[in-house]
Amino acid sequence: MRSDVRTLFFAAAFGTTCALVLTAVSRLAAPYRSANEKAEEMRNYLSALGVPFDEKASAKALIEIFDRNVVVQTNGRLRIYAFVPAGVSQEAMAFAVPLAGMGLWGPIKGVLALEPDLRTIRGLRFYQQEETPGLGGEIGAEWFVRQFKGKKLVSFTGEPGFRLVKKGMPLDENSVDAITGATMTSERVQTILRDVAAKVAEERGRHDRNE
């Protein structure tokens, strides 16, 4: 009986000490940590939008730049990040929308930046993906995303959509080269882009009506 009480007492004392230490450390680290997490997300949007910023900027500086230049709006199904340069103009210079969907092995997340006409692609960036390294994983590579700059999210006829076509096939404004040897990943990326194109088209309709 006495040993039980002793055990209980020890456990309580030990548990309390541990909890105190953990709470203290967590409290101290929390502001830095959350700033880092937020800055990580913002860095993706800033670089997709083409907002100039220092690569090595601290988390705090990044958040400041983001708040000064970017306006976030949520319209229906779509969240839009508008680039309104501070002190230059009231008009948005670019828009960015989040991309998300299933890849071959896991979720793919990215940012798609658009010109103010909401048709032309300004930049593309995948910041989370688990595709086969060296094949599908190439969607994160510079050469792949660079192809998208200046392409359109709508076809000749005005239909929203996008195509990834086999290397060697003729390209138009609405398509880029797929990755050789990674058909599945390319298909998934195409689906994700079409999905976003449809949402953006909806948004464009609303935009045009307002004007």
């Binding site: 055990t7 456990a11 548990g15 541990c18 953990l22 101290l28 680290a29 830095y32 940590r33 880092n36």
Partner: peptide
């Protein structure tokens, strides 16, 4: 002073304290 019956739990708790501290500091 550790009661033998709960020593394993104490070991795990002790390890976790240091690991979590390190992890938090790294994240910060």
């Amino acid at each position: 002073i550790t009661p033998p019956r709960i020593r394993m739990i104490v070991e795990i708790a002790l390890i976790s304290v240091f690991v979590i501290c390190f992890d938090q500091i790294l994240k910060a």
